Simulated assay, not measured.
Amino acid sequence: MSSCKTLHLRGVLPVLCGATMMLASPSAAQDADAPEPTLEEVRAATERFRDIEVALAEGYIPDPMNMCEVATDMGYPAELGGMGIHYFRPDMLGISGPPDPRVDGNGTHTDFRQPSILIYEPMADGSLELVAVENLVFREGWHAAGNAERPSFHGVPYDMMEDDPETEVDEAHGFAPHYDRHVWIYRENPNGVFKPFNPAVTCEHHHAGH
């Protein structure tokens, strides 16, 4: 019999049921042994996810509140731009239970050939356009697995995200302290291909809850 777990992720409560949790979890050893892919290889390996139905079929979970994140949500200047709507694989992130008090996990997956997070921009016609891919590892779990340094991609260390309790915004958007890396291979980013926000991405066509 399958069971469901309710997780608070990016400020909402998605329900993760048996079909998703039955997906094969990626192995850390596979990540460590695989050579680092080029950006062209990452794009070739993820091209199929431009079709959102393919992402859903492969176990990526949408935010049921359909949140679209921009720089100001995390306390950064508006001119940095947006991220978009995140679809994620809980098994790759190592999430196995509800927040306590924040979403946390022990996954060590960093292979961009199969990213743990896909990022989409809502379009005027109601469709979603894939704009970036992302990998994320939680800080405690990453170092508990024996990693001394934060992960890196193409020689660039992942960004560190942690909430500052002295501010009104949540810089870590409901997550425990973590490292993440965005790769903008489907939408040119004036800020840089590895920066978290993109001024060429907008949430103006986003409708919360739809």
Rank of each mutant, 00 (worst) to 15 (best):
P14K: 02
T108L: 08
A172I: 00
L13H: 14
M74D: 02
M161C: 07
H206G: 11
D51E: 11
H207F: 04
M67E: 06
L56R: 15
G59E: 02
P165N: 04
W184Y: 09
H206A: 15
P77L: 08
P196F: 00
E79S: 11
A57T: 06
V70E: 13
D164F: 04
M123P: 03
S3V: 12
S27Y: 03
A200E: 10
P77G: 11
Y158E: 00
E149L: 12
I185N: 01
T202P: 00
G146S: 12
C68Q: 03
A34P: 00
T108A: 09
L39C: 06
D163R: 15
G209S: 11
V201Q: 09
G97M: 08
E36M: 11
P37V: 05
A132E: 11
T72Q: 15
H154L: 14
S25M: 11
A132H: 02
W184D: 00
P157G: 09
D164C: 02
P62F: 10
V169T: 13
G174C: 04
W142K: 06
A34M: 10
S2C: 13
E79G: 00
A132G: 07
A34N: 10
F112I: 05
H207W: 02
L13K: 15
P157F: 10
Y179C: 01
P64M: 03
G84R: 02
V42F: 02
A148F: 02
V12W: 06
N189Q: 07
T167E: 14
C17Y: 05
A34K: 12
V137K: 08
G192W: 02
E69H: 04
S96H: 12
L16M: 12
A148Y: 02
